[in-house]
Design a protein around this nucleic acid. Structure first.
Lengths: 324, 324
DNA sequence: AACTATTATTGAAACGTTTCCAAAGTTGTG
DNA sequence: CACAACTTTGGAAACGTTTCAATAATAGTT
C-alpha cells in the first residue's frame, strides 16, 4: 500500500502539502496541487481511513442499535438511515440487541471502545447510567434523558386517530393490545391516545398488555383468548402491524372473522402489509422522514451544533386497508 | 480517556507488560498480572480499538454489501450474519447498493479505504476487475471468479422441486417469471431447474423475464399480462417470494384467482409469508445456515485457512402454503 | 533595492497501540 | 557458588495520518 510519504517524495513536496491537497485545504499553489494530484494518480494512492480515524481520534462510523433488523419496520428504517448516512460520508454499523438489556449494554461498551462517531438507538431498557457522554446519541421512540434527543412519530395522535377510525367503522367495544413498554417509551402514548379517545367517545374499552416484552406471541394470544370478556371485543388496535397480523392469524383460528366480527388497526405501515390477508388498516409512521431526521440531528450533535428540541414528533396518517 | 501508558505507570510496569496482560500473552508473572489488572480497574481503562486497528493494519469490521436491507429475505440474512459475527468479535457494516453497478463499485472502494477485514457480497454486477485481492470476500448467490467462494442455496434442485410440486398440484402449462440475472448468478439455476423438470414432464412452459433488473414491478406485470398466451398459464414459479406476492396481487386485479385459476410457488421462504394472502407455497432457503456458513468461511479466509470448495450449495425444501 | 506583508511549504511531533530485542531476573545443575 | 537455560520485563520503534510552529517564497510598497 502506498502512503502519504511516497506520494510526497514522488511529487517532490512535503508531507503536509500532500495532506492539504487531499483535504482540500486552501493554501496550496495550483501548480503544486497539480504535481501532487499527478503523483497520487500515478501511485494509485488512496488515503488510509484507519490511520486517519486514529489520528483524529474519531471514526466515521455510526452505529444503529435496534432490537432486530429482521423486523420489517426496522429494516425499512435502517434502509433510509444507511442512505442518509452514506450521503454524508458515514458508514453504518448494525447491532441487533434482541431487546435484551444485557445486549444493549454490551453493545454500548463495544461501540465505545470502537470510538464510533455517534449512535442511533432504539432501545428497550433503562441504560441511562451506562451512557458515555463522549458519544453523541439520538434515540428513536424512547426517552433517555433530557440530554438525549428523541425522534418519534406522533404516537399519541396516532392512538387517537386509530380509535376514532375504529369508531367510524362501527366499533363500540374496542381493545388495545401490545407488550408493556417502559414509562419512558414513546410507544406508550399510542395506548394513551387510544384510551383518551375511547373515553371521549364514552366507550367501554379493554387494554391487554403482555408484561414480559420477550414472551412469545403464541402464549400471549392463548392468554388473551382465554379471557371470556375478550370475545365481546369488536375492534382491536394493535401496537404494531406485525402484532396486528399475528392477532388476525390467531383470531381466525378462534373462528373470529376480520373485519366482519372484529375490526383491526395496526401501527407502522410496513411495506408488506398490502400483501397481508386481509390488507391491514394502519397508522402509517413516516419512516423515511424519521430516519433522515434522526441522522441529521445526530450529525448536528457530532459537529457540536446545539439541538433545539428534545423531542421531534413526526405526524402520522391513517391508511385504509380492508380490516376496518 | 486513559491509555496504556497511564495504566503502566500506575501499575509500576512497562508498556509491553500491560499490553501482554490485555492480550493474554503467556509470559507474565501472576503477581504482575494482578497489579496490572488492578490498575486497569482503578483507572477504568478500556483499550482503544481504533489505535489497535491502526497498529495492526486491519479492522474488526466486516461489510455486508447487498441490494437493499428493506427486502425481507436480506434482512433475515443480515440478522443471522450479525449474530454470527458478533460471536466472533466482529462488527457488521451495512451497505445498500440498490443493485446498481456504480454503487457496488463505490462501496468496494470505500470499504477498501476503510480496511475492512472482509466482505460478504450479494452483488448483481460484474465487478471482478475492481476486486482488491487484499480483502477476503465471500459471495452469496453469485459467482465472481474461482478465487471467490460462493455460498448459495441449491437453486437448481429448488427449481426442479418447484416445477414438480406445481405438476402435483395439477399444473400443465407452467410459467417461470423473474428478472434476468447475469450468467454468473446462481439464481439463474432456479430457472434452469424449472425448465429441465418441465421438459422431463413433457410440459409446454413459458419463461418470462424482465431484462432490466431495476424496472419497476408494475410495468413488468403490465407487459406480462399484455401477452395473450400468458392468460393460458395455470401455474407460476416466481424467482422470489416477493415477486410471487406481487404476481398474486396483480393477477387478482386481472380477475385471476389464486390458487383456483393459477397455482403459485415462490422462492425464499421469508418469514412473513404466513401473513400473505393466501399463504404462499414456496421453496424455503435455509437462510440461517447460509448466513452462518458464509461468516465461517469468511473468517477462515481472513485467518488464512484455505477453503476447500469454491461453491457451497445448501439444500432447500418445499414448504406447502395455500397457493398450490 | 530594501523592506514588509502575505502566502506557501516543510517536517517534527503526536495519536495509542503492538512487537521485538536486549536486559534483568529466576531457577536448576554440577 | 558459578554458570547455563529459561522466564519475565522494559521501552524504543513503527504504523499513516494531521497539525503546527518555523521557514521559505512571493508579491506589494516605498
Amino acid at each position: 500500500m502506498t502512503n502519504l510519504k511516497q506520494v510526497a517524495e514522488l511529487a517532490g513536496v512535503g508531507l503536509g502539502t500532500v495532506s492539504r491537497v487531499i483535504n482540500n485545504h486552501v493554501s496550496v499553489k495550483p501548480t503544486t496541487r497539480e504535481k501532487v494530484l499527478e503523483a497520487i494518480k500515478q501511485l494509485n494512492y488512496v488515503p488510509n481511513e484507519v490511520a486517519r480515524n486514529f489520528k483524529m481520534q474519531k471514526s466515521n462510523l455510526i452505529a444503529l442499535l435496534l432490537p432486530s433488523i429482521w423486523n420489517p419496520f426496522f429494516s425499512e428504517l435502517a434502509y433510509y438511515i444507511e442512505d442518509e448516512l452514506d450521503r454524508e460520508g458515514y458508514k453504518l454499523i448494525l447491532c441487533n440487541s434482541g431487546g435484551k438489556p444485557s445486549k444493549e449494554l454490551y453493545y454500548f461498551d463495544i461501540l465505545n471502545q470502537n470510538k464510533v462517531a455517534g449512535i442511533l438507538g432504539i432501545t428497550y431498557n433503562d441504560i441511562e447510567d451506562s451512557l458515555n457522554n463522549d458519544i453523541p446519541i439520538i434515540s428513536i421512540d424512547r426517552h433517555f434523558s433530557k440530554t438525549v434527543p428523541c425522534v418519534t412519530s406522533d404516537n399519541y395522535s396516532g392512538g387517537r386517530i386509530a380509535m376514532r377510525e375504529l369508531y367510524n367503522a362501527g366499533v363500540r367495544k374496542p381493545a388495545f393490545i401490545g407488550v408493556v413498554t417502559k414509562v419512558f417509551s414513546e410507544t406508550m402514548l399510542r395506548k394513551q391516545g387510544f384510551i383518551d379517545e375511547a373515553a371521549a367517545l364514552g366507550l367501554d374499552y379493554v387494554v391487554y398488555e403482555e408484561p414480559d416484552p420477550l414472551m412469545d406471541e403464541l402464549s400471549f394470544f392463548n392468554n388473551f383468548f382465554a379471557i371470556k370478556e375478550h370475545h365481546e371485543i369488536d375492534g382491536v388496535f394493535a401496537i404494531t402491524d406485525m402484532f396486528a397480523a399475528r392477532y388476525i392469524e390467531q383470531a381466525q383460528k378462534q373462528g373470529i372473522s376480520v373485519p366482519d366480527d372484529v375490526k383491526v388497526i395496526g401501527y407502522d405501515g410496513i411495506q408488506d402489509n398490502t400483501l397481508f390477508h386481509p390488507i391491514l388498516s394502519t397508522i402509517r409512521q413516516p419512516v423515511e422522514t424519521m430516519a433522515r431526521t434522526s441522522v441529521r440531528l445526530l450529525l448536528q450533535r457530532i459537529e457540536g451544533v446545539p439541538i433545539e428540541h428534545d423531542t421531534y414528533r413526526i405526524p402520522v396518517e391513517f391508511r385504509q386497508g380492508k380490516t376496518t
